[in-house]
């Protein structure tokens, strides 16, 4: 009996491992053929994507750069806001305010991405068009704003946990030595929590680079080289928008799998970095 239960738990545990292996193997197998046909350099560094044209072009450099710029932009806006919110919540805010803001953050985390996309499409895109006086608001900038909001909850929550784990003695010592509370937070608490905060940033990167639905609705999806007010296509949206129509076995479909493989490698890299930071923070 004991053994049977042990076996069941082992199987349940292996389900996850099996899924990861299955997806990895499937992606590699279905992603390699197109890269071999197109050529790795042509595929990664080609500037033109026209998958259904008479002379198809399969260059994904615009998608790669867009994903990098979009994620960097979201981090640039989202991290300062999220980090400051976490400092405020853990050190300054009163219990009532803290409870309220934390509830709001949790709610924000629970909003489905299609809703972000819809609100972005109805409010943000026309808003950007009016504020910046450009012909159309669907752009890299709109995607960055949406992504920055979407990564806020994970950044706030992880930084908050890291900041709250800083031993109170450190802060007491700093205060006793005559530092003001604000000096204490930024000179003592934040440095002590820095690997946790770094982990929060990497987690935000992972969330931003993998998002598809919301940005598909606000980024315009034209395969242009990225510019801030230009319509752009991300790695994720490139796969999502064409997959449903690509014919089975066509080079287009294979190329979409290759894009997914590139995206997968990106996310693997980010995970490796995340693990590095988490390990680091445990050791400290």
């Amino acid at each position: 009996m004991e053994n049977a239960i042990y076996g069941i738990f082992l199987i349940l545990g292996l389900i996850t491992v099996g899924c990861v292996l299955l997806i990895t193997i499937y992606l590699v197998i279905s992603g390699i053929p197109a890269i071999r046909k197109i050529g790795l350099l042509h595929f990664l560094l080609g500037k033109e994507w026209a998958s259904t044209a008479q002379q198809p072009q399969y260059g994904i450099l615009p998608f790669i750069l867009t994903s990098i710029y979009g994620t960097a932009g979201a981090i640039f806006i989202g991290v300062p806001i999220g980090f400051m919110t976490a400092v405020y919540l853990s050190k300054i805010a009163g219990q009532k305010v803290k409870g309220m803001i934390e509830t709001a953050v949790s709610l924000l985390a629970g909003i489905p991405s299609v809703v972000y996309g819809l609100v972005g499409m109805m409010v943000l895109v026309p808003g950007i068009r009016l504020i910046f006086r450009i012909p159309d608001g669907a752009s890299l900038f709109a995607a960055i704003v949406v992504l920055a909001i979407m990564i806020l909850p994970s950044i706030i929550k992880v930084s908050l946990t890291a900041l709250e784990a800083v031993p109170k003695e450190y802060e007491d010592a700093s205060l006793a030595l005559g530092a003001t509370p604000i000096e204490t937070y930024f000179r003592v608490s934040v440095p002590a929590a820095k690997s946790g905060i770094a982990a929060a940033v990497v987690l935000g990167v992972g969330r931003a680079i993998g998002e598809a639905m919301a940005i598909m609705m606000v980024a315009g999806n034209a395969p242009n080289m990225p510019e801030i007010f230009q319509s752009v296509r991300f790695l994720t949206t490139a796969v999502a928008s064409e997959m449903s129509y690509a014919a089975e076995g066509s080079l287009q479909k294979q190329a979409l799998f290759s894009i997914a493989l590139v995206l997968f490698l990106f996310i693997m890299m980010i995970n490796a970095v995340l693990n590095f930071f988490l390990k680091h923070s445990k050791e400290n």
């Binding site: 499409m121 026309p126 068009r129 012909p135 608001g137 999806n221 319509s231």
Partner: peptide, 27 residues
């Protein structure tokens, strides 16, 4: 106009096209 269209936005559903055109006077 096969392969010659200079799209500003490529949307994935009819509904999205209608919503976008409805929201932009130049579309």
């Amino acid at each position: 106009t096969e392969d010659a269209c200079q799209y500003r936005q490529e949307l994935t559903s009819t509904g999205d096209v209608i919503t976008t055109v409805a929201g932009n006077p130049g579309a």
